[in-house]
Computed example of a mutant assay.
Amino acid sequence: MEAAIDRIMMTYDLLLNRTAAASADARAKVTAYINTLIEAGEKDTHRLTVCGLTYLRQLDGTNDPVKAGYTGL
């Protein structure tokens, strides 16, 4: 689990320039989320990493095409 969380945070920190406090907050949230996935039976480290990154992107809104500036035109 720790390897997946470290990989998630390393990749996420490359995507966004955030403060140390924001990074610590994101780590706490993704750790709780990954624990939920593990309790549900997920064991694949790569899948946990992808799910964790998707979760963080949904939290900060970068996964929303409208917020990213896409209007569909």
Score class of each variant (00 low, 15 high):
residue 71 T to L: 13
residue 55 Y to W: 12
residue 55 Y to G: 06
residue 57 R to F: 01
residue 9 M to P: 12
residue 37 L to I: 02
residue 6 D to F: 01
residue 19 T to I: 02
residue 19 T to G: 13
residue 65 P to F: 03
residue 58 Q to F: 00
residue 44 D to C: 04
residue 65 P to W: 04
residue 65 P to R: 04
residue 2 E to P: 01
residue 33 Y to W: 09
residue 63 N to F: 02
residue 64 D to E: 06
residue 59 L to R: 09
residue 30 V to Y: 12
residue 14 L to I: 00
residue 18 R to F: 04
residue 27 R to V: 02
residue 18 R to M: 13
residue 47 R to N: 05
residue 48 L to K: 14
residue 53 L to I: 05
residue 18 R to W: 04
residue 67 K to Y: 06
residue 12 Y to I: 06
residue 15 L to W: 00
residue 28 A to L: 01
residue 56 L to H: 04
residue 67 K to C: 07
residue 31 T to L: 09
residue 14 L to P: 00
residue 24 A to I: 05
residue 17 N to E: 09
residue 40 A to F: 04
residue 40 A to C: 02
residue 7 R to M: 07
residue 59 L to P: 01
residue 7 R to E: 10
residue 7 R to A: 11
residue 16 L to Y: 12
residue 42 E to C: 10
residue 59 L to F: 00
residue 31 T to F: 00
residue 29 K to N: 05
residue 12 Y to F: 15
residue 48 L to P: 14
residue 8 I to R: 08
residue 72 G to R: 12
residue 68 A to W: 00
residue 52 G to F: 05
residue 14 L to H: 03
residue 34 I to M: 11
residue 52 G to L: 09
residue 35 N to V: 08
residue 11 T to D: 03
residue 15 L to G: 02
residue 45 T to I: 14
residue 27 R to P: 09
residue 51 C to G: 06
residue 47 R to G: 01
residue 71 T to Y: 07
residue 53 L to E: 03
residue 62 T to Y: 07
residue 12 Y to R: 11
residue 7 R to L: 10
residue 53 L to G: 10
residue 72 G to I: 10
residue 12 Y to A: 10
residue 25 D to K: 12
residue 61 G to C: 02
residue 21 A to M: 05
residue 71 T to V: 12
residue 40 A to E: 12
residue 12 Y to Q: 10
residue 39 E to M: 03
residue 35 N to Y: 06
residue 23 S to Q: 13
residue 62 T to C: 15
residue 66 V to L: 15
residue 38 I to P: 02
residue 36 T to R: 11
residue 37 L to W: 01
residue 37 L to R: 14
residue 24 A to S: 14
residue 1 M to E: 15
residue 62 T to F: 06
residue 3 A to K: 15
residue 15 L to D: 06
residue 41 G to P: 05
residue 38 I to M: 13
residue 32 A to W: 01
residue 58 Q to W: 00
residue 53 L to T: 01
residue 10 M to L: 07
residue 46 H to L: 06
residue 15 L to S: 05
residue 4 A to M: 08
residue 2 E to Q: 14
residue 10 M to C: 02
residue 14 L to K: 08
residue 45 T to W: 03
residue 34 I to T: 15
residue 11 T to G: 00
residue 28 A to Y: 00
residue 43 K to H: 07
residue 30 V to K: 15
residue 27 R to G: 07
residue 2 E to M: 06
residue 9 M to K: 14
residue 70 Y to A: 12
residue 20 A to W: 08
residue 71 T to S: 13
residue 58 Q to I: 03
residue 52 G to V: 09
residue 25 D to S: 13
residue 24 A to T: 10
residue 57 R to N: 11
residue 12 Y to H: 13
residue 19 T to M: 02
residue 27 R to M: 08
residue 27 R to L: 08
residue 29 K to G: 02
residue 24 A to W: 05
residue 65 P to H: 04
residue 65 P to D: 03
residue 69 G to E: 14
residue 3 A to I: 12
residue 18 R to N: 11
residue 6 D to W: 00
residue 36 T to S: 13
residue 61 G to F: 00
residue 31 T to M: 07
residue 41 G to F: 07
residue 2 E to F: 05
residue 19 T to R: 08
residue 45 T to D: 15
residue 27 R to Y: 08
residue 66 V to G: 11
residue 33 Y to C: 06
residue 24 A to E: 15
residue 19 T to Q: 05
residue 57 R to G: 09
residue 10 M to I: 05
residue 16 L to H: 13
residue 47 R to C: 01
residue 16 L to R: 13
residue 63 N to R: 01
residue 45 T to S: 13
residue 17 N to S: 09
residue 33 Y to A: 11
